[in-house]
Computed example of a mutant assay.
Amino acid sequence: MEFTQDQINELKSALKNKQLSAYHNRIQAVYFRSQKMPYKSIIELVGLSHDTIWRLVKKYEQEGISALIQDKRGGRRAAYLTYEEEKEFLKEQLEASASGEFVTISQIHKAYQIKVGKETTREGFYALLKRHGWRKVTPRPEHPKKQTLKPFQRLKIKSTFKKTRKRFKHSRRYNKIRLMYQDEAGFGRISKMGKAWAPKGLRPQVHSHHIREFRYCYGAVDSHTGESFFMIGGGCNTDWMNEFLKQLSEAYPNDYILLVMDNAVWHKSRTLEKPSNIGFEFIPPYTPEMNPIEQVWAEIRKRGFKNKAFKTLEDVIDKLQEVIQSLHWSDLKSIVHREWIFSDFEFE
């Protein structure tokens, strides 16, 4: 390429422009060629390859200085569909995906091949899924009889909470109105296996048995503050629920607690003794995801009960107490945090 004086002056001006300092190497390489400097010398000075310098000169010849100050690199050089067309194709598969039909990639890959009208590699299709944020996950299980009343039930709980706050707003009887989520879970000597870190070539071996001895943990967590109350009991029945409510009431004597729970029979028993500073609200049947404390039980099991074989029931109780005491309020607040709770309820 033969450079004109105007082009040489343009390259000089670009080299002096501080705003183009990020592209200094490219501009300098082309400028050196305009001065008829050999490729070998330019390579040593700017650190670019012979082919790169040649392409930069060619681009400058065709498009001018703008060709040297573009950030276009890489990109998709060959594709059966545009990005928007891929997005539209995956949108068509959302309904089947949401119901867990795509157990293997074969089904959705076959639909893609029909869409483009030719065979494609799985590797390329994996890249497509990754590009659009798809991944393989285990579906969240739900009961066939699950009710779809969650939004309405949230409004009901919200209404009860607001009425309770209004009722005691000017009362000196209670310092605070709390919204706490309650549940109970069994912990016993049946071993639970879980994944563990180990070097390649080593598969850990742990003791395991299936002895059916249990103790039950009752718990209540304030999803706003992360404060909690737990009690270990001998069973799930009205007597133990009465004891839990009594101890919970005594733990917060100056607060009124709206306790949200599931529909277990001992939660609605006629002989249930409800303290004066505790009120009840129930989530719809078969909707455990509406009770954030469910994830607390999962965290307790992960911290203290995976890959363990307990010799006695006392060992189970000791481990349960140890893990509960290790749960900081900030940990619990993080576990039970739900956007819909903070958006639906106004906390003081």
Rank of each mutant, 00 (worst) to 15 (best):
Q35M: 07
M37D: 00
P38D: 10
Y39K: 07
S41C: 14
S41D: 15
E44A: 12
L48F: 15
T52R: 15
I53C: 04
W54L: 00
R55P: 02
L56W: 03
V57G: 10
K59D: 05
K59W: 05
E61Y: 09
E61I: 03
Q62W: 11
E63D: 14
G64F: 15
G64K: 15
I69T: 15
D71L: 06
D71F: 05
K72E: 04
K72W: 09
R73V: 09
G74P: 01
G74E: 12
R77Y: 07
A78Q: 08
A79G: 12
Y80G: 10
Y80E: 02
Y80Q: 12
L81H: 04
L81M: 02
T82N: 00
E84L: 07
E88A: 01
F89N: 01
K91E: 00
K91F: 07
E92P: 02
A96F: 08
A96W: 07
A96D: 07
S97I: 08
E101A: 14
V103W: 07
V103G: 03
S106H: 09
Q107Y: 08
I108R: 11
I108M: 12
H109T: 04
K110A: 00
A111C: 09
Y112N: 10
I114G: 00
I114E: 10
V116S: 02
V116L: 00
K118Y: 13
K118W: 12
T120R: 10
T120V: 05
T120Q: 02
T120H: 03
T121S: 15
R122H: 05
R122N: 04
E123N: 14
G124Y: 15
F125G: 00
L128M: 09
K130Q: 07
K130I: 02
R131C: 04
W134L: 12
K136N: 11
K136M: 15
V137L: 11
V137M: 13
V137S: 13
P141G: 10
E142K: 06
E142C: 05
H143W: 12
P144N: 08
P144F: 11
K145W: 10
K145P: 05
K146C: 04
T148Q: 13
P151F: 09
F152D: 15
F152S: 12
Q153Y: 14
R154H: 13
L155S: 09
L155P: 03
